[in-house]
Design a protein around this nucleic acid. Structure first.
Lengths: 345, 345
DNA sequence: CAGCATGTGCAAATCGTTTTGCGCTTGCCT
DNA sequence: AGGCAAGCGCAAAACGATTTGCACATGCTG
């Protein structure tokens, strides 16, 4: 029986109790008030008392209890970001941008995954409000309006990504999708494509990307051949299916603009399987500029969706309100989607 | 001048003050104690009072203040995950696994990015302790020992990813890297490779993946040709450089095991540029199974690094301690790294 | 009927800070 | 000398919950 007794769950390493401001005050021979003032600098304290307090803080290794502080000041120094799925590169990058923008002002980042469920979204919204977060970035469902507004009504600033909400305390960050897809389409036209098709998102979805496509065609005096318009479901497989349909046409396209990169990658798959050269036989451009765009062969020409900048900008909007620098009506920031030229078009 | 006056920053929509437990108690004609008991169920309250309280809660729309509760109960219902960079797929997936494991028990997820800086790591560790998180998952630097232990000494359970620390309150989740790379190497041997090379990580890094390679070779009675061993820096470009060196040899390899997928993708780049067929002329296998592995052509045969399961398991270990179900010495969980066969080998 | 357990509710203490208001001292100005 | 402002420190009241201990009523047992 060399085994240690498990009964009573002995703590081999005892937990250290945390030191409080009262203990510091006692050691320094002052009141808690004074300690607080030394630490926060909200009132000036005499030099001698100050160093006494600082010494006490040091020797005791005092660390202010963040929860108690939050309770009193009504500030949690935490911002929440609500996304469909952190696993998707777009959202993790956006989250990182947000974190980078706010970490300097001592804000932490609290992440919630909704998996696209509106129900879960409102649940998390409620949750983060109960937790007293100082700001919320909502990059989730489209039908966020109601919940978001009720959130903002508690006085917590909210930034919506991609949505458009009219409330004095919610700002919006969007990208200029029409301009991006217009540029992509013009590029296709410019390089001599005759029959330009598009693989769109599901019905009623991603309409702005379609809009830019039509606009560019009209500008160039081209008519749109309806038979060259296909719909996918944003996935690689969806792109394959759509592309197979397009290339099976009697008069297939010689260029395809895809509403996102995943579908574009599926389209490339199909082109290669059919023995077509990309971009010589069929040019392909995507939208988003995910990591995979540089990995696929040929590397994908695409429109960059600036996830990091979006998150960063959202953080800045939040900060400006939290600092009290801005308290007017809701702002809308539109970010550019530059075309990035690679090999596929 | 139809513009609204900006002076004084008028709140068009006034902030709603939050309702407190005291107001609920007053409306229901009971004491705050009773309200608390109704809500928590810690003591039974008479049916009539109970419904009175519940009605009051409903009509007032009462939501308990999470911060106040945390202060009193010393539980924040929040776990922190400290990672180098959320942007890297491995860490975002791990984080998601952690979140999924703990969300059911009402824990939120707080994310910190260290960018590999040990300094920042200890800073965040301090920060999350001040915030009173209930558990910490440390997936950051290797030299975490000191900081992590001091954290655990405050009684907060810690789970280290990939590290190995001996402390009664820190558990460890690792993967069986030697077994994974052994399987990969044996597969290469099994498919008839004669000259097997390896692209390793930087010196002193990823040694376990090298170990499995040597082990497999020894088992198969193969001797390792030192000239076929190259080092990369985990990046795609590093893989290209290493591969170029290997293929420039008088007697180049006909199979290469790469210590991670990114380098393997770089290796594939080079092979294709040299006009070699993969896997016919040179077989390639990677390690990690990142998303890109299915996108590259040919699709990469690789060893799966189970990021999601790692995060999930870490969450479960944390939970078992938080629930008080486990309080013995630190546990170590080793997860499998299955070989996933695709086209490159 | 005494005695005792059980059910039900409240007052007050507690968690660890920040912040308000007050009192004392000191020095400077007239 | 009197008056006033500024400097410095503390006591006590928040912040909004949870939890302990006590008091009272009720029902049951022997």
């Amino acid at each position: 029986m060399t085994e240690q007794t498990t009964e009573g769950a002995v703590d081999v390493v005892p937990e250290q109790p945390r030191v409080t401001i009262a203990q510091v005050a006692r050691l320094a021979g002052v009141s808690p008030t004074t300690v607080s003032h030394v630490l926060s600098g909200k009132r000036i304290v005499g030099a001698t008392t100050r160093v006494a307090v600082q010494d006490a803080v040091r020797t005791l290794g005092y660390r202010p209890n963040h929860v108690a502080r939050s309770l009193r000041t009504r500030r949690s120094q935490m911002v929440a970001v609500i996304v469909p799925d952190l696993t998707k590169p777009y959202y993790s990058v956006l989250t990182r941008g947000l974190a980078d923008a706010t970490v300097g002002a001592a804000y932490g980042t609290y992440v919630c995954n909704t998996d696209g469920s509106a129900e879960r979204e409102t649940g998390f919204l409620q949750n983060v409000l109960d937790r007293g977060v100082d700001g919320i970035v909502l990059a989730s469902v489209d039908a966020v309006s109601a919940a978001a507004i009720s959130a903002a009504d508690f006085g917590t600033p909210v930034v919506c990504i991609g949505g458009s909400i009219d409330h004095p305390r919610v700002d919006v960050v969007t990208i200029d999708e029409p301009a991006g897809s217009r540029a992509a389409t013009l590029h296709l036209i410019g390089r001599g494509a005759e029959r330009i098709g598009m693989i769109q998102g599901p019905p009623e979805s991603g309409l702005l990307r379609v809009e830019g496509f039509f606009k560019a065609m009209a500008e160039a005096g081209r008519s749109v051949d309806e038979s060259l318009l296909a719909k996918g479901d944003w996935t690689r497989q969806g792109g394959r299916d759509a592309m197979t349909a397009l290339m099976g046409l009697a008069a297939p396209p010689d260029a395809v603009f895809c509403a996102n990169d995943l579908m574009a990658i599926g389209a490339i798959d199909v082109a290669r399987e059919l023995g077509l050269r990309v971009p010589a036989d069929v040019a392909i451009v995507g939208f988003d500029d995910v990591d995979a765009a540089t990995i696929v062969t040929p590397a994908l020409t695409t429109v960059r969706n600036p996830a990091y900048e979006t998150g960063r900008k959202a953080g800045e909007l939040l900060l400006s309100r939290l600092r009290g620098e801005y308290r007017e009506t809701g702002r809308t920031v539109v970010l550019d989607c530059p075309l990035v030229l690679r090999e596929s078009a």
